[in-house]
Amino acid sequence: MVLDTDAFPPASRLPSNPDLPDPLETLAGEPVSTPAEWRARRSELEALFRYYVYGYAPGPEPIAADVDRTESVLDGKATLLEATIRFVDLPDDAPTIELALFVPTDVNEVPVFLGLNREGNHAVVDDDAVTITDRGRRFGTDECGTQRKYWCVERILERGYGFATYHCADIDPDRDDFTDGIHPYYDTDDLPGPPGTEWGTLAAWAWGLQRCVDYLRTESVVRSDEIAVVGHSRRGKAALLAGATDERIGLVVPHQSGTGGCALSRDNDQESVARINGTFPHWFNDVFPAFGSRESRLPVDQHLLVALVAPRPLLDTEGSRDYWANPGRAYDALQAAAPVYDLLGAEGLVGTGRLSDGDELTAETADTLCQYRRETGHTLNRGYWDVILEFADLHFSRRD
Rank of each mutant, 00 (worst) to 15 (best):
V350P: 01
P281C: 07
A336H: 13
R234F: 08
L298E: 11
R354S: 08
R329Y: 01
Q270M: 11
G250E: 12
N268H: 09
L240H: 07
L334G: 10
T317I: 15
S272W: 10
D359A: 11
Q256L: 06
N277G: 06
L304T: 03
T279A: 14
D316R: 00
Q335D: 03
E318R: 14
H282K: 02
V300T: 15
D301E: 13
S293V: 02
T317H: 14
S257T: 02
V340T: 02
A346G: 10
L308W: 06
F288Y: 15
G348E: 02
V252C: 11
A244S: 11
D267M: 12
E247I: 01
G351N: 08
V340Y: 07
D359K: 13
L355N: 11
G278F: 05
G353W: 10
L308D: 12
R354I: 00
N285P: 04
E271T: 08
G236M: 07
D269F: 03
V273H: 01
S356M: 09
R294F: 01
R275H: 12
L344S: 03
V309T: 14
A274V: 00
D316A: 14
G243K: 01
S272H: 08
P299G: 06
A238L: 07
D316F: 11
V287D: 10
N268I: 05
R297F: 02
T245I: 06
A325W: 00
R235H: 11
E318A: 12
S320M: 13
D316M: 12
E295M: 02
L308N: 08
E271Q: 10
P327D: 07
D269I: 02
D301Q: 09
I249A: 10
V287T: 13
G353N: 05
A242G: 08
A244L: 04
Y323L: 15
E364F: 04
D357C: 00
D246V: 04
Q335M: 10
A338L: 00
G345K: 03
W324I: 04
Y323D: 15
R275T: 11
L264G: 02
D246N: 12
A325Y: 00
S293E: 15
N277H: 14
A242P: 02
R297N: 09
I276N: 07
L314M: 14
A307W: 03
L308R: 07
E247V: 00
R297K: 15
W324S: 07
Q302K: 01
A337K: 08
L298R: 03
R266H: 10
D342I: 03
P254T: 04
Q270Y: 04
P327E: 07
P299S: 09
L315N: 05
Y331K: 11
A274S: 12
D332T: 05
L334I: 05
A263I: 03
R248K: 11
Q302F: 09
L349S: 04
L334H: 10
E360F: 02
T352W: 06
L298P: 13
L334P: 07
G258Y: 06
G250R: 09
D342Q: 14
Y331C: 03
F291M: 05
